[in-house]
Design a protein around this nucleic acid. Structure first.
Lengths: 170, 170
DNA sequence: AACCATTGCGCAATGG
DNA sequence: GCCATTGCGCAATGGT
């Protein structure tokens, strides 16, 4: 019904198995997997031959639909047979709540960062304008100083002439 | 051996099954899953009851290790029974190569963005300094103009006094 | 211990 | 088809 009729999306159930070591994790349905990176910073997925899951495409414009019939209440408890201290609370509700809160925090933080960057750019532009204005002001004042100095030197000359003229008179 | 001895990491193999519609994808080992979002922008995973996979933890400082024994060469071909045009090339090699190239491009792009931001910040600071210098310069020039004007007015007074004195003499 | 904030990273969509 | 950019979620980590 509602699931398969939105063309681009498909709902997928899957199981996990792992192959290694500390088998304390119960089966989990993965949403995001992170594999160890090789020291050179390259991914290891290739070595692993893992093929990422990719058919659960985000429906770009999704209508609200009822998926309740698909909701499997998760295992929740996840007993840990070995006495190992259990992973904080990976499975289910608690985990999802933390994830969701973090996603919100991430969005918030990134918006903040974006705004900060924009402000910085804007400030740089403003400062550049201001700078140009100040330089023009300086140019103007410099000319004024030059003019005054020149005028003063003229006055000096005139005064000296007058002095010598006065001496002649007397 | 090499896998399980780095405490925080574990290697996990898993299979996917999906439940819906266009079943043309073969089993995939997912690395990153994106589920459709509800129209309010919130995640739908919760409704689905999916529990994300989370025990494949990134070993913060990984040594180079041999995972070749775990590499399952992926199904690769993925025949499409129905005459549907196949998804560009989801499965395997081709896909992984594109992903890897994109990951590289992403890192590159983000480094570039980071550098750009840093440059902008630095430029803003430089402009701020420059600005302060210019303002001081302006202050200095303004004082100079004031002094010259004051001096000039004094000279005017002196000259006028001398003029009147000269008249007295003659 | 519990939270939020920040950051690096991979995936997918999209732009050029 | 390819690379560049961008939004997004996950997990690690930093700060309280």
């Amino acid at each position: 019904m509602s699931v398969s009729d939105s063309p681009p999306s498909s709902i997928c159930m899957f199981a996990l198995h792992h192959q290694s070591s500390s088998s304390q994790d119960s089966g989990l349905y993965g949403q995001h997997m992170v594999f160890p990176k090789t020291p050179d910073g390259r991914s290891m997925e290739q070595m692993m031959g893992f093929v990422p899951y990719s058919s659960c495409v985000t429906p770009s414009s999704s209508e609200r639909e009822d998926f309740s019939q698909f909701v499997l209440p998760p295992p929740a408890s996840t007993l840990h047979p070995s006495g190992q201290k259990r992973r904080p609370s990976k499975d289910s509700v608690e985990y999802r709540q933390r994830r969701e809160r973090n996603n919100i925090a991430v969005r918030k933080s990134r918006d903040k960062a974006r705004r900060r960057v924009q402000m910085t750019q804007q400030r740089a532009l403003q400062l550049q304008d201001e700078n140009q204005r100040l330089q023009l002001h300086i140019q103007h004042l410099s000319h004024e100083v030059d003019s005054l100095r020149h005028y003063l030197s003229q006055r000096h000359l005139q005064a000296r002439e007058q002095d010598t003229a006065g001496e002649d008179v007397c």
